[in-house]
Nucleic acid binder design. Structure first.
Lengths: 268, 268
DNA sequence: CGAAAAAGTTGCCCTGTGTGCAAAAATGCA
DNA sequence: TGCATTTTTGCACACAGGGCAACTTTTTCG
């Protein structure tokens, strides 16, 4: 029950908003008057933002993910039910399933948002840039506090919980598919590009990104201080360097402290 | 109810073996006499193979996976229940869950077996060989008819079924972890190896293997003729070449028809 | 404005999953 | 052969997920 312009018959006068209920639009506005327009006057039709329906859906969706995340933090993975989430979000259990097919799906939507953001960074890179450089830049963009914070948390939780871990694997895989799509559009607007090259490279880039995040979490445990994030950024850069150089040296050479050349010295 | 040396009280004299029931050990042998020993004589204790318990468990396990695979083929993914599998395997629903946590887990055990086999190939490579070459050899080993047959089928089914696809993602990820472990033992018996190098490379190798299989299935649709398998083998080799050369050329250069040099010409 | 239509929510009910528990059966061992 | 150990099984229970119809909210249209 996200937002009612006229309160539900059975609803108490003061609704008992449990925690993250989607009351981000102030109630009390008359029926179908868009916010900001005067009652009685014809709709201004200028601030044609998203409709009330869309706002409600977005708010409910967010209330669900917020509630799920809160419960995940407080109870730990696997120790709460869909009904708990629905109660905390102020909706019915049935409505939850109208939005997400499972608890994991609700939580994974956060990860999806994160990775979609990375993808957006990739798409925004200049057209002439090489795939590797674009990918590197997009990945480094992720090492920003507000972007990486929820992911670091989910990622470490996913290590412990199989269900959650599966959802995250799926999210990474989905991201790989998206990158393949983006790269296809970028580099071969009309021509036929080598599919193997595309898929192998995209998969490897994601694998390197995962490796960097794995290592970062193992070392810094999801710490979000500036130093820790610098480490993550460096790990991402280093892993891309390794990939770009064909994993040249199997020796245990520690990465140089400064950004190494992104193209291998003896080629290109 | 895998094997009864003395038939169950309620069991009919001629058991109604549904389909894949684990009657691979002939019944009728007296209680605890190992197969081959004469009744009444003390156990020979020479052919101390796996005990009856272990044989039964293995047989039941196989009966379950066989039944699950059969149902998967006949009904399609998601169109049968755990109870169906249990009935077909001749066990109770509850016993199924003693072996596998879900339908997908039962089916994924096949994929796990396949990937574990690949891993075994990797471990058996000579110690001096480079990671990349060992991985290439191990992957190519997979392009054998009897090895790849069940996987090709599951892989294409996994494309259509989300549940199944997730399980397979998990299997590949598990394989990645195993490769990391194997490589750590191989290349750094005592020393400290660069974790990033290890994880990024292992992940990339698996990603390239997946890319090759994706492409093969898209092109050949799981065809298992010699020509099709040669294509798969070539794709695996090519993807490893791309990885080994740092994905040097973004051009859509079709792979040469003959096996290219597995190490890039200007290095090593 | 007000009624009809469209979209969204909810309760009810049903099938199926996954697990704890204790009895019963199978197996191992002396 | 009798007892200890392991495995199977039935039963019960909590939860997942989804179809369906009634109901509420939002939009559309006369």
């Amino acid at each position: 029950m996200p937002i009612s312009s006229s309160p539900r018959a059975s609803a108490p006068p003061v609704p008992d908003v449990p925690s993250g209920a989607p009351f981000n639009i102030p109630p009390g506005a008359p029926s179908n008057t868009p916010p900001g327009a005067l009652p009685g006057a014809p709709p201004a039709a200028q601030p044609e933002g998203p409709s009330r329906r869309e706002l409600n859906k977005a708010a409910t969706r967010e209330a669900i993910t917020d509630a799920a995340l809160t419960l995940l933090r407080s109870n730990g993975p696997g120790n709460f039910t869909v009904e708990d989430i629905a109660d905390a979000a102020g909706i019915s259990r049935r409505t939850f399933f109208n939005y997400f097919g499972s608890t994991e799906a609700a939580i994974a939507s956060v990860t999806h948002g994160f990775l979609d953001n990375a993808l957006q960074q990739f798409r925004l890179r200049p057209a002439g840039e090489s795939f590797m450089e674009s990918a590197r830049a997009a990945l480094v963009e992720l090492a920003e506090p507000m972007a990486v914070a929820p992911i670091a948390e989910l990622y470490s939780l996913g290590q412990a919980n199989p269900q959650l871990g599966r959802s995250e694997l799926e999210a990474w895989d989905h991201c790989t598919e998206q990158i393949i799509e983006a790269a296809r559009e970028r580099f071969a607007p009309g021509t036929e590009i080598d599919e193997l090259y595309l898929r192998a490279l995209a998969g490897s880039v994601i694998a390197c990104g995962r490796a960097a995040m794995d290592l970062w979490l193992a070392r810094c445990g999801g710490d979000l201080t500036a130093g820790s994030l610098a480490t993550l950024r460096q790990l991402l850069i280093d892993s891309m360097s390794l990939l770009g150089s064909g994993f040249a040296s199997p020796d245990a050479a520690p990465a140089p402290p400064v950004t190494p050349a992104t193209t291998s010295p003896e080629r290109h």
